[in-house]
Design a protein around this nucleic acid. Structure first.
Lengths: 120, 120
DNA sequence: TTGACAGTTGAATATGTGTTCATATATACT
DNA sequence: AGTATATATGAACACATATTCAACTGTCAA
């Protein structure tokens, strides 16, 4: 009676590969954080914001104008990006200027672009 | 009367930067595809599947056992990954073996890991 | 051909999430 | 002080989506 019967609703086909793969899998915590990171990038509005911020430091109003969206929705998304440690901000008078706070963003975007090109 | 009044509910603060950034923004289509790609990676189950497939070609049952999940949920996710051109499959008898169909996956994962490490 | 098993798929449900709206806060200006 | 503006934020709504369940297809073996 295999231990796997309690875990999943099917028989193990290739027990050796399964065991080896299980052993190599990182902790669940790693996958949660990894998925969380990509989920942040997986939204059209946020990816536009990041692309824009990669070019210039900008305030909320600027970004809203570039994307043609409301200040409120942009501010919500910037909050999400800030809490994820992907952007940071500095206050200057009434305005709040946002910049990228992760030097991997451009890299990730480039690979994403390559994927798109490849699948075209 | 700026054109932007019709697009967004706020005044333009830095018109020059806004215009320059708008000019440099890729088409909406690009952002849709880019976000779609990252959205696929932005799920714990799918990222686990991809990590596992990066090590071995595996059938649905194998993957279900590695992740400790039902065949059905894995099959649904594999369908999503297949339709996105991220995995491909080959049939052999009753079994269907899946492999990665995008050589950028490992790269993207590594950058994601760096992000996690950096923010720790 | 009948039964067992690998895999797929559609419907249903539960949960997550993006935008809007209304409101609050903070700063600058008169 | 009072007003206007920039931004933030909570609640609500609409929509997307991950998993489960049940039913189905296709393949192998007896």
């Amino acid at each position: 009676m295999s231990k796997n019967e309690f875990i999943c609703d099917c028989n193990v086909i290739h027990q050796d590969i399964v065991n080896k793969t299980i052993k190599n899998m990182p902790d669940a915590d790693i996958f949660n954080k990894l998925a969380e990171f990509f989920k942040i990038l997986g939204d059209t509005t946020r990816s536009k914001i990041l692309f824009a911020l990669d070019q210039n430091e900008m305030c909320v109003c600027d970004i809203a104008n570039v994307l043609g969206m409301s200040k409120s929705s942009i501010s919500h998304q910037l909050g999400t990006l800030r809490r994820s440690g992907i952007v940071k901000c500095r206050k200057s008078g009434k305005e709040v200027f946002y910049t990228l706070d992760d030097n991997h963003i451009k890299e990730v975007f480039e690979i994403g672009m390559e994927h798109i090109e490849h699948k075209k």
